[in-house]
Nucleic acid binder design. Structure first.
Lengths: 192, 192
DNA sequence: CACATTGATTGTTTCACCGCAATCTCAGCT
DNA sequence: AGCTGAGATTGCGGTGAAACAATCAATGTG
């Protein structure tokens, strides 16, 4: 557990090895996953933007090694070296763009599309080639997928079962292998 | 029309007076509204983040006066004056946070909540005090509200009709007045 | 090895919201 | 004034996905 939603934003983190999960929770306790963070990605952007409190919660889902910078040091660094600030702008910009894309997806596409897209992104981001296909190499429950795709674990379970029958994915306990990514991408075109 | 989704990102704009609308369109032609931009806000953040093409479309919904900076000039400015880059980080950060909030809202809250929230935000951002309440001071059709809240114009129309009966809002042709903002905020707590 | 706990599956029921369609209203134009 | 077209309203099904619920499988523990 790196920090909780609402904590004072004290540190900026960069993942060296491992995997983090960033989530947000509503007042009613409803939780959604914002994104998974792998090696090289940064957590705690609030520090960069000068937001006083973390807007989300970040926990590790594997053993993880991190670099840490205190907020003050980070702000000084950005003030002194424009290039660092420029990098921060670029990172935030691409995250912003990605979030907008998800927003569009969530408001206009079906659950099936969103699950397909979520799996494809995870496979790209944290995939490992195996004999059967691309394996998502950290433990990932149906509940987790549901929170990413903005749906319920029940619907995810049904959808994955259907795909498993078609040979598009393989799934074990908290573990998913994407066998035919092109079939998942095709889901986005038209209902199979 | 400032620019189209997919155009090369050439300029950064700042609104002096008027009102812009930022939208994104899916391949299937489905459109969602990202946000409305009023005086002091900036359009074309892609230029800041170094993204080569505009990810959305921006059009003016009123007569609007703008400042314009070419992308090169902007990048030079940020490289030379760290403070400008820091400001850019802050702007992008707060936009990012706001988008995450909408994402959470869209995936966990009902249509009614989202319409209420959209109206409240517009009233805060572009409201003008009148005798009856806070008036949203630019033309805004049901379709526009629907694109903001991620729903259809039909549902928006129904919801606004109901609220008008309860005296929460007043609406004329492409024109909305929020009479009892506290009642709208209460919608977010429990279904009335 | 039995037991407890967490995660996954699947059937049934329910409901919020969308899509269609017909009608109505208002704003601007000639 | 009368016409025209864009915007708004409303009723009525249809349906995708959530809610509820019961069962089953896997993992880890004393």
């Amino acid at each position: 557990m790196l920090y909780h939603q609402g904590d004072a934003a004290l540190n900026l983190y960069v993942v060296v090895v491992g995997r983090l999960r960033a989530t947000q929770t509503t007042e009613e306790g409803n939780q959604i996953a914002l994104r998974y963070l792998g090696p090289g990605e940064l957590a705690g952007y609030a520090v960069l933007a000068g937001i006083p409190r973390y807007p989300g919660t970040v926990v590790a889902v594997e053993d993880t090694h991190l670099f840490v910078w205190p907020a003050n040091a980070m702000r000084q660094l950005m003030g002194r070296h424009a290039q660092i600030a420029l990098n921060a702008v670029a990172v935030l910009g691409s995250r912003y763009q990605e979030t907008q894309l998800r927003l569009r997806e969530l408001s206009s596409e079906t659950v099936e599309h969103r699950i397909a897209h979520a799996l494809l992104r995870l496979a790209n981001q944290a995939g490992r080639r195996t004999a059967q296909g691309t394996e998502i190499c950290f433990p990932l429950s149906r509940q987790d997928i549901a929170e990413l795709a903005g749906t319920t674990l029940h619907t995810v379970s049904r959808t994955l079962s259907a795909w498993e029958k078609e040979g598009i994915v393989l799934s074990a306990h908290r573990h998913v292998v994407v066998c035919r990514p092109e079939a998942l991408a095709a889901v986005n075109e038209a209902a199979s």
